[in-house]
Nucleic acid binder design. Structure first.
Length: 656
DNA sequence: ATCCTGGCATTTTTT
DNA sequence: ATGCCAGGAT
C-alpha cells in the first residue's frame, strides 16, 4: 500500500490520542486499515485493537479491506458498530449489565409499543405528537444524554402541559418495555455506557483489554457514544477519523463537538489532516466544492483532485419519476453495451421511497441490482408473521409477538389476543402456557402445538422455522394474495437460520443487522448495480454515480424547512452524494412542477407563496453539462446508586 | 362484542 | 407496501 506523507504520518503515529481530519475521498479507510496493519507489524496483539464504526456497512467494508491486507489475522481484530460491540459485552456478562433474558426490538416494534403507550395515556387526539415523533424525542434525548424534559423544553415548542403528557407516555412506554423484557437500540448503548460509568471494576476490566481504539466516522458519533469512548480510553489510545463536512446524522444526536472539541477534551491530543482526494476527477470535486462554499458555515474545505481532470458532471431535468427512471436505465444500458460492468454503477437516492420508480425500471430491463437501505427482509409482513412464533417461544413476555402470532388465527382479533396474553403471562412455565393455549383455542389445535414444538426447538433454529412454516403456511397463504412471491423467502430464512446455534441468537442477529430482500436473494451474484440511500452510501464509491431526485423538496428535504442547522445538514447530504463519484456523475431531478404530484407538506409552502429552497438553484453553468439554464428560468419561485432502576436519565461522568 | 374486509391515505435519513 | 378507519358480517 502506497501512502502520501500525510497518510503515512497518521498510519505510523506514535503519540497519545489523535484525531484525523479527513475530507471525502482522501483515503480514510485505507489509512485506518493501514494503521491496523502497522500496529500488527509492531507486534500489537490483534485482539487488543478495537475498530468501531457507526454503520454496519462501514464495519463490513473495514473487515473486508483488512482481510485483503493481512489474511486470516483480520478475523482476530474485533471490528463492528458501536451497537454490535456493546451488545457483545451485554451478552458475555449479562449479570454485570443487568440484562438477562432481554430481546432486542427494532424500530417497528418500538413504534408499535409507543402507539400502545400513547393510546393508553392520550387516547385519540390527532393533534398530539404521533408515535413516531414521540419515539424520536425519546431517542434523541437519550443519544444526547439529556433528560427528556430538558430536551423538550429547549428544542421543541410544546407547552408545559403537553410536555408533561409526553413524559407520561414515555414512562408508560418504558414500563411496557420492561414488562415485555425488551430493549431497544438505544438501550444497548445506554446500558453499556451506564454500567461502564457506574461500576469501576467493570470499567477497569474492559479498559484492560484494549491498547488501541480506532473510530471511523467520528463526526457521526453522538454524546452517548462519546461517553462510551471516554470510558474505554486510557491506557488505550484513541485514533479517531472524521470529516465535519460529512456529518449527516445530527437527527440521531450526532454532535460534531466530538470532532471540534476533541483536542480540548483530551489534553495532549494531536490533530492530523488528510487533504488530497484520490477518488474523483476535479470536475466532480468542483461541483462539491461549490456546494459547500455556498454554506454560511465556512468549512474552509477545497477538495483537490490528485487524479486531475475528467468529464464534466451532467445535470438533466426530467418531466417526472418515470422519465427519470428511463433516463437512468437508458444510460446504464448504453454503458453496458460499451463494455462496462454493472458493479461500477451506483444510483443514489435521498429517500428509499423515491427509488421505487427507478427500481421498477431496473427490473423491467432485467438489470441485476441490489437495494441497500430498502425494505429489510425481516420487516416484510409475511416474515414477521412467521417470526412471531419464534419470538414468543424464545421470550414468552414478548407481548408484540404474541399479538401478531395470535391474531393470525381465524376468529382471533385484538381483544381475544389481549385477554389470552394476560392469561399467558400468569403461567409459571412454558408447559403451562402450552396447556393454557390448547384449552383456550381448542378450535385451532395447531396454535398450541406450534408453540409447544417451537419451544422444544430453541437450540435448532432451522428446525423451528420448519415447524413454523408447516403450522402457519395455510393461514399465510390465505392472508396474502401475492403468496407465490412471498413464500420463496421462507426457504431463504431457513438457510440463514442454519448458521445459528439458538433461536435467540438468530433473531438477534437479524434484528440488529437486517439484510435487505434483494441482498439476501442475490447473494451469489456480484456484478450488480447498487441502488442506495445517500446515508448508507457514505464511505463507499463508484466509477459512475447517478444522483436521482435532485430537486426542490428533496435537497433540502421539505420536512426540514426553516431551521438552518437542519438545512445545512441537508446540504452535507448532497455533498456526501456528490463525493461518491469517481469518473462520471449524472444528476437528475424534476425541476419544473408540471402540476405533478406535490407532497402535502410542500403544498403548504406553495400555497403560502414561499419559495421552496433548492441547493442547485444558482449553480454556475460552467460547472455542469446541462439541458437548462436554471438560473435564468427559475420557476420556484455524579455516582448513581447501584440499584437505581431508572433507564432513561442522563449518565453522570466518572471523570468530573 | 368482536372480527374482517375494502377503500383511502401516506411514505427521511440509521442503529 | 402498509396503516388506518368505517361499516358490514358473524
Amino acid at each position: 500500500m502506497q501512502f502520501n506523507a500525510q497518510q503515512q504520518r497518521a498510519v505510523e503515529f506514535d503519540g497519545g490520542h489523535v484525531l484525523v481530519l479527513a475530507g471525502a475521498g482522501t483515503g480514510k479507510t485505507s489509512t485506518i486499515v493501514g494503521r491496523v496493519v502497522h500496529l500488527l507489524e509492531q507486534g500489537v496483539d490483534p485482539r487488543r485493537i478495537l475498530l468501531l464504526t457507526f454503520t454496519r456497512r462501514a464495519a463490513r467494508e473495514m473487515r473486508h479491506r483488512l482481510g485483503q491486507q493481512v489474511g486470516p489475522t483480520a478475523k482476530k481484530v474485533p471490528a463492528g458498530t458501536f451497537h454490535n460491540f456493546c451488545l457483545q459485552y451485554l451478552r458475555r456478562w449479562p449479570d454485570l449489565f443487568d440484562c438477562q433474558g432481554l430481546s432486542i426490538i427494532d424500530r417497528d416494534d418500538q413504534l408499535q409499543l409507543m402507539k400502545l403507550a400513547r393510546g393508553t395515556v392520550i387516547g385519540k387526539d390527532a393533534r398530539f405528537p404521533k408515535a413516531a415523533e414521540l419515539a424520536n424525542y425519546y431517542s434523541y434525548a437519550r443519544n444526547t444524554n439529556r433528560r427528556l424534559q430538558e430536551y423538550l423544553k429547549r428544542f421543541t415548542d410544546h407547552s408545559e402541559e403537553i410536555i408533561q403528557l409526553i413524559e407520561n407516555v414515555i414512562d408508560d412506554y418504558s414500563k411496557r418495555k420492561r414488562d415485555c423484557r425488551y430493549f431497544d437500540y438505544d438501550d444497548i448503548l445506554y446500558i453499556f455506557a451506564r454500567q461502564m460509568h457506574r461500576r469501576k471494576s467493570l470499567r477497569e476490566k474492559i479498559q484492560k483489554r484494549y491498547d488501541h481504539l480506532l473510530v471511523d466516522e467520528m463526526q457521526d458519533t453522538n454524546p452517548l457514544q462519546w461517553m462510551i469512548l471516554d470510558a474505554m480510553r486510557d491506557p488505550a489510545k484513541l485514533f479517531c477519523v472524521g470529516d465535519d463536512a460529512q456529518s449527516i446524522y445530527a437527527f440521531r444526536g450526532a454532535d460534531f463537538r466530538n470532532v471540534h472539541g476533541f483536542a480540548d477534551r483530551l489534553p495532549g491530543a494531536s490533530t492530523l489532516k488528510l487533504e488530497e482526494n484520490y477518488r474523483s476527477t476535479q470536475e466532480i470535486l468542483d461541483v462539491a466544492n461549490w456546494l459547500l462554499d455556498q454554506s454560511p458555515l465556512g468549512y474552509e474545505k477545497k477538495l483537490h483532485a490528485a487524479r486531475g481532470n475528467g468529464e464534466k458532471p451532467i445535470w438533466l431535468q426530467v418531466d417526472d419519476e418515470q422519465d427519470e427512471a428511463t433516463t437512468v436505465v437508458e444510460d446504464l444500458l448504453e454503458r453496458r453495451d460499451g463494455g462496462a460492468n454493472w458493479r461500477d454503477h451506483m444510483i443514489l437516492t435521498r429517500t428509499a421511497w423515491a427509488a421505487r420508480t427507478v427500481e421498477a425500471g431496473l427490473i423491467q430491463e432485467d438489470i441485476p441490482y441490489r437495494f441497500v437501505g430498502g425494505t429489510a427482509l425481516m420487516q416484510s409482513a409475511h416474515i414477521k408473521d412467521l417470526i412471531s412464533l419464534l419470538r414468543v417461544a424464545d421470550n414468552r413476555s414478548d407481548q408484540l409477538a404474541w399479538i401478531r402470532f395470535l391474531t393470525l388465527w381465524p376468529r382471533v382479533g385484538e381483544k381475544t389476543a389481549a385477554s389470552a396474553i394476560l392469561e399467558v403471562f400468569k403461567q409459571p412455565n412454558t408447559d403451562a402456557i402450552s396447556e393454557r393455549l390448547q384449552n383456550r383455542f381448542g378450535a385451532n389445535p395447531r396454535l398450541g402445538e406450534a408453540y409447544q414444538q417451537c419451544v422444544g426447538l430453541l437450540d435448532a433454529p432451522a428446525k423451528a422455522i420448519e415447524v413454523a412454516i408447516e403450522k402457519l403456511e395455510p393461514l399465510l397463504e390465505k392472508k396474502f394474495d401475492d403468496w407465490d412471491r412471498r413464500s420463496k423467502d421462507f426457504k431463504l430464512l431457513k438457510k440463514l437460520a442454519r448458521d445459528h446455534a439458538t433461536v435467540g441468537e438468530f433473531l438477534e442477529t437479524y434484528t440488529l443487522d437486517p439484510i435487505s430482500e434483494s441482498e439476501a436473494s442475490q447473494e451469489e451474484q456480484d456484478d450488480l448495480v447498487t441502488l442506495i440511500t445517500v446515508h448508507s452510501a457514505k464511505g463507499t464509491e463508484a466509477p459512475v454515480c447517478y444522483l436521482i431526485g435532485v430537486q426542490p423538496g428533496n435537497y433540502p428535504h421539505s420536512r426540514n424547512n426553516g431551521d438552518e442547522d437542519q438545512i445545512e445538514e441537508e446540504r452535507r447530504v448532497l455533498y456526501v452524494a456528490m463525493t461518491r463519484a469517481k469518473d462520471s456523475m449524472m444528476i437528475t431531478g424534476k425541476v419544473r412542477s408540471h402540476g405533478a404530484y406535490t407532497p402535502y407538506y410542500n403544498q403548504k409552502s406553495l400555497d403560502s407563496g414561499t419559495e421552496i429552497p433548492f441547493f442547485l438553484t444558482d449553480i454556475p453553468n460552467a460547472l455542469v453539462e446541462s439541458d437548462c439554464q436554471y438560473g435564468a428560468t427559475n420557476e420556484f419561485g455524579d455516582e448513581l446508586t447501584e440499584d437505581d432502576d431508572d433507564w432513561s436519565g442522563p449518565i453522570m461522568s466518572f471523570r468530573d
